[in-house]
């Protein structure tokens, strides 16, 4: 009788890459809906554009590499990359910039390095940084949350702005766009204004940017869901947020007039999204348990440094990319203490 042969363990596998990526996508839904709620159709249009571009780009590269595209597309990693990129983009970004960023993320940052599992940098953040340094004007032209501006753009208006590149007749950029709270904080601090003055702006909510703080909460919910499901480890988000709060708290305690309170850092930009969804991208992050703590903490620190003294208002993307480079070194110096190894607590 002929039997199937395989190496142990023989039990059916419990997990698959598709399921991991799918779970992360699911966890993004509440935060994404919150963004839609505050920033309108542009958010969803960006996501749709980015995903379509990513899938097409990935399929094209795979065909060029003479591999079957379908099994790879099925792992949903390209969808996740595109989705994360789109969340980081201003909601009314011209369509071709979204397409360019998404294609760059997939083709250059991911597939040229060998595809899933081989990219040293987080593809979504690579795409974002490419756009940010190439198109600083459009990339910093955010919308105020509609609770601030009181007006909300219709689907047609949004489509018009994104595809035509200019506001529909009767509207001007000044009327519909605004800086992000982080951007505003930065530019006004540069003009030597006090935190208490800056905070009088309608962009500010209870502890972060208005609207932003709620978006952060919803992403936090999704992130905690991922930790609970065991998809991501608690170490990277905890150490990243912890380090940021610690150092921000320190500076705030020293000089609360020129350093915003710590919660502001957490709830005004991409910090929550970055901590739970971007820095935790397993391929480009540190993988040893102690290494993850170091990696997360250094990202948190770097975010504060760049936000406070750097040239860009938000810093999650740069910090993640910088630490991506350091991840292999961190792993090398933080091996686990294996069972029965005599170095630390010996019985």
């Amino acid at each position: 009788m002929q039997f199937a042969l395989s190496s142990s363990p023989h039990l059916d596998k419990t997990q698959s890459v598709t399921r991991v990526m799918g779970t992360v996508l699911l966890a993004l839904v509440p935060g994404t809906l919150a963004m839609f709620w505050y920033f309108g159709w542009g958010v969803l249009i960006n996501i749709g554009l980015a995903i379509a571009t990513a899938m097409a780009a990935e399929a094209a590269v795979l065909i060029l590499r003479q591999r079957a595209p379908l099994p790879v597309l099925m792992d949903l990693s390209a969808v996740l990359t595109a989705w994360l990129l789109a969340l980081a983009l201003p909601p009314l970004l011209p369509w071709w910039q979204t397409v360019l960023g998404s294609a760059f993320a997939i083709v250059v940052a991911k597939q040229l390095f060998g595809g899933i599992g081989f990219n040293p940098f987080n593809p979504a953040m690579a795409g974002y940084v490419l756009l940010l340094v190439s198109f600083p004007v459009t990339m910093t032209r955010w919308l105020p949350p509609d609770i601030v501006s009181g007006t909300s753009l219709t689907l047609a208006d949004s489509l018009h702005i994104i595809f035509a590149g200019s506001p529909p007749p009767g509207m001007s950029w000044d009327a519909i766009s605004s800086a992000t709270p982080l951007d505003q904080m930065r530019s006004e601090l540069l003009q030597n204004r006090m935190i208490s003055e800056i905070r009088e702006s309608p962009l500010w909510g209870d502890f972060g940017g208005r609207g932003w703080e709620w978006i952060g909460n919803w992403f936090l919910l999704g992130g905690l869901f991922l930790v609970w499901r065991g998809i991501i480890s608690w170490r990277i988000p905890a150490s990243m947020i912890g380090a940021l709060l610690l150092v921000a708290g320190l500076f705030w305690a020293i000089d609360p007039d020129t350093h915003p309170f710590p919660a502001f850092h957490l709830f005004s930009g991409g910090m929550i999204l970055g901590a739970f969804f971007i820095a935790t991208d397993p391929v480009s992050a540190s993988t040893t348990p102690r290494g993850q703590l170091v990696y997360g903490a250094l990202i948190g620190l770097m975010v504060f440094v760049i936000r406070t003294w750097g040239g860009y208002p938000d810093a999650v993307a740069f910090s993640v990319l910088l630490l991506n480079m350091a991840a292999p070194t961190i792993d090398y110096y933080t091996p686990t203490r294996i069972f029965g190894q005599r170095d630390r607590h010996e019985t």
Partner: peptide
Amino acid sequence: RWPFPRHAASGAGH
């Protein structure tokens, strides 16, 4: 000796 495992699917391009 155990043979080198090689049953990578398409997509495992390495």
